[in-house]
Simulated scan of single mutants.
Amino acid sequence: MIDETMPGAGEGAPAAERPTAVLPDAGAATGLTDLQRAEIRRLAQRADALVEASLSANTRRAYGTAWQQWTAWCLGFDLDPTAADASWLAMHLTALSETRSLSTIELRRAAVLAIRRRLGRPIHLDDGYFPEFLQGLRRTKGARPSRKAAVLEENLRAAMLWLDPDTAPAPKRCLRDRALLLTGFAGGFRRSELAGFDLRDISFTADGLVLFVAGSKTDQERRGEEVGIQAVPRSPLCAVTAVSAWLAARGDTPGALFCRIDRGGHLTCGPDGRLQPIDTKTVARLVKRVIAGTGLGAEDFSAHSLRAGMMTAADRKGVSLEAAMQHGRWKDARTARGYRRHSSLWQGNFTGKLLADE
């Protein structure tokens, strides 16, 4: 049983690898003093704070990790990471390319460039070399995205049978997990949104429930947005029914809607008496655990599978892309289409007719 009061371990930084390319002009390797190296490490620790106002929490964590790794790599060559030029960044990314995916490499590049700008020490990429390097890297690594499978209606039906509060050893946890999964699917919510919901963010109407999303990946200025989920009482997948059952067990204590539950099955309160939110990693673990419980391979699924499932199910039912985008709060149509896990491939597909008997 997972103790959700324990924070998840962060991603470990990979060991720096010595690049095989010819070293650039070593003028940047200045023979740093101990005082300079201490200041560099201090700057590395402040990297998250420098981007806090403009980036989401997940992006800040990723950028902070990337900057720490860039710093460690540079110090391995006695380089100042706030002064190393584009050729050194190219070598750093080349070293990463031996073990990391293209998406990870692109994120590390963006992080280093962004933090260097905020430090007032931008890396200049206007000499033509770096764009050509990136083009060659993309052609070599390939740009095919790695996508997790979508959680679909049939998966959720099996999950609801597996998460039976009448037979589960921890019925409150079971009720919470049912409500979280069905809400995540019906609302197309990101894991950060599910973990961030407060009790005050939910209200009920004659048609269903309304959830207020205070801020998200596509709402960095936190204007907020309401998402409605209709009640379908006769369906075992009704999120409104599941949330109502969970709230009856949760009670009206202020705090997180989907709160932490300890090993003993008790809801976890903080020093202020408010129920504590679950970690976003708990959402991911929940999806994998439930999927594994239904007999499918957990490695093919993630927390994002709920969001992909909503879009795929909407596409299956003939919901317009525009309506699905508005409900799921997508801003870019190309991105939204990528969430339809192959469902649209079969609408109007004629290939079966090519081999059919006359």
Rank of each mutant, 00 (worst) to 15 (best):
S101Q: 03
P171G: 07
L345E: 09
T82L: 10
A314L: 15
S344H: 15
A13Q: 06
P169S: 06
G338D: 09
A95D: 06
T59M: 04
S235A: 09
L296G: 02
P233W: 06
G297L: 08
R176W: 06
L209K: 03
S54A: 10
T218L: 05
V22Q: 14
A44P: 05
S97K: 01
D357I: 03
W346G: 07
A249K: 13
I105D: 06
A9H: 07
A111Q: 04
V283C: 11
K353N: 05
L345I: 06
R263A: 14
S320C: 11
A159I: 01
F77P: 02
G309A: 10
R41S: 00
A26V: 11
G136P: 02
T335W: 02
S320Q: 12
P236H: 06
R116F: 02
Y63L: 07
L355T: 09
A150I: 01
G264L: 10
P271C: 01
L89P: 08
A333V: 15
R108E: 06
T335L: 03
L113P: 00
A206C: 04
F77C: 02
T65H: 15
Q68W: 02
A158N: 15
T140Q: 15
A356F: 12
L89M: 14
P122K: 06
I2P: 05
A333W: 13
I229W: 04
L182Q: 01
A150Y: 00
Q347G: 04
R337A: 12
K148L: 08
L134P: 07
P171I: 12
G8F: 10
G297F: 00
Q347H: 12
L125H: 07
A248V: 12
A308P: 15
A242L: 11
I115E: 03
R176T: 06
L180I: 07
G295K: 02
L321P: 06
A86F: 10
D48K: 12
T5C: 14
G273K: 00
L354R: 12
A38E: 13
G328R: 00
T99A: 06
F189Y: 14
A15L: 14
A84D: 09
P81C: 15
R121M: 15
L211C: 09
G12Y: 02
A239C: 02
R116H: 14
L180V: 01
G318Q: 12
I115R: 05
A284K: 08
T71V: 15
E98M: 04
M6A: 13
A248L: 11
D300G: 02
S101A: 12
K148M: 08
R139N: 07
L267M: 14
M160D: 13
A26H: 04
D201S: 05
A84C: 13
